[in-house]
Design a protein around this nucleic acid. Sequence first.
DNA 1: GCAATTTGTGGAACCGATTTCACATATTGT
DNA 2: ACAATATGTGAAATCGGTTCCACAAATTGC
Lengths: 330, 330
Amino acid sequence: MPTIKDVAQLSGISKTTVSRVINNKGYVSEEKKALVLKAMEELEYHPNLSARRLRGQLTTTIGVIVPKITNPFFSYLVDAIEEAAYEKGYQVLIFQSNEDPKKELAFLNLLKTKQVDGVIMTAVENHWSKVKSFIEHGPIVLCNVYIDKSKVPTVRLNQYKGTYDGIKHLIERGHRKIAYCTGGFFKKEGKGKERNQGYQKALEEAGISINPNWVFVNQHSIEDGQQVLRKILEMDERPTAVFTGSDEVASGMIAEANVRGIQIPDDLAIMGFDDQPIARVVSPKLTTIKQPVDRLGEKAVEIIIEKLNNVESSDEYCELPIELIIRQST
Amino acid sequence: MPTIKDVAQLSGISKTTVSRVINNKGYVSEEKKALVLKAMEELEYHPNLSARRLRGQLTTTIGVIVPKITNPFFSYLVDAIEEAAYEKGYQVLIFQSNEDPKKELAFLNLLKTKQVDGVIMTAVENHWSKVKSFIEHGPIVLCNVYIDKSKVPTVRLNQYKGTYDGIKHLIERGHRKIAYCTGGFFKKEGKGKERNQGYQKALEEAGISINPNWVFVNQHSIEDGQQVLRKILEMDERPTAVFTGSDEVASGMIAEANVRGIQIPDDLAIMGFDDQPIARVVSPKLTTIKQPVDRLGEKAVEIIIEKLNNVESSDEYCELPIELIIRQST
DNA sequence: GCAATTTGTGGAACCGATTTCACATATTGT
DNA sequence: ACAATATGTGAAATCGGTTCCACAAATTGC
């Protein structure tokens, strides 16, 4: 591999000036610039990023922590983040925490060791006080998670409102026996709690009290959904509608309902969350809540780059709208 | 951030010896080792990777090129690769080519500039002669793609056999009018061609000739599938079965069939490819072809790490079995 | 016409690690 | 007892860039 020295030698110009040409910085005469560019071309020269990083203390890489890339919500989010970052000349290092706090810390250490300039977290597994300590090493932006006392730049969706609107939709359809499936629920922080509050509030306003038997926690997969449906069928008093925290769970329920001959939405109305592709292929198609994933990713990248450049961010806290999409399952 | 110099100063020992302790290399007395370790602990020292890379010419990072992370097949593949690499102490840099040859080349340049030690390619967009030139800068392993003349370590699935078995299954069910949907097909190399050959061979053996009207190319998404179904319905002579190159396309067809009141598999049998979660939630559930994604990823990582360590690889070419999964759509 | 800027350039120091080399001491073999 | 080897250590060079600084030439201001 050719180095800057080779370029300097070939063009008969100092390393310093070559560097100036590369970075388009400082005074360089057109004449010499042309010579340098020609030499660079000829040698197929590419600056060594490690050397740049070592000197410059920057990596042009941002890290993204996701719980699981196989979850479509996150793969679309990563997709959006990557695209936005790529346009700004940043690389993206994707990291899966697998919801393991230790792995999350391991990745945050990349910030400490300056392998990434900043981190976008789409989930937080550790207690915030632990995560907070990494901020001194580089910016952290929360994306799709909200931590009350964090004071960290955050882009998020209003999960409370999304859930509230969803439940309200069910109530408007005449349902009063509304079950609730969620992925989190027990966590003290994060979107689980918010969604939960939306559920409670909507029921409360309609004067409905929560039946604890109809609350299912820690449900994530298609299989989980199938199981939930079987459980509901075994109940003496069944709900007439189910609000789920993900299209996967909802789809699993529909698949199982189809097998068992349960009519949806007549026997049971089912709502998803996310508006993933799967929502449009199950039969009947899922009523769900659409999250503007693209905007979410873009905005997170925008904010983190502002932070990296020490630009006073316009908004440290950004809440994006969430949309109810009514199809056939409710 | 503390540097090796700080550790040396605090422990009163030379940088050289500290380096020896860190890398566990060369002679160091137990006594001094203990001192160094204590100082490292105290300062919370982490070696700067850029400096290491600059000097050592290695990155402990492997790159993975995928066409699109939002395609579940690839997100599961990346998941498997990442897990396997993580265990071996390697980081994974994920890169989307978006099927754009330019972006692919841009990423391969990371190999040139030594930002990644090696690259796993799960798709090849450029002509092989172009890609080949990067091999001198680091190992490339092909995963899920096969290039005839490449002579590069390859892990792959036998797409030919998968497709052949799938078509044969349809023939055994009594079908003779079999349509075919594929993502690639026009490409001269890669799995598109192989699958195509499997399709042709199976038909040929059964004495069936191909009806060009029933061949749909460049079909990827759920929407594509919906459109294909509509096209089929408009035909004077309709096929009785459709083999598709992805569960998405197949699911789109099923969704549309349900809307149009077409009975599956009675009016039309449909096969998917990949065995993605979606295959189990559509109604009827998809008959599909399962690819052992986990093994595929593991094996690719295994081979690339062998290459990186200059170990004579046991097998440069590895073919994994592919499995037909019969459900209800055929 | 002379000081004050602006423009243009290169030498040398620096970023934080690893590796080479020279040298000192300890252990072994005979 | 003495050479040969094994063990232990640190100063200095190196990786490939960027940036500081000193200095020269060209422009500008008055």
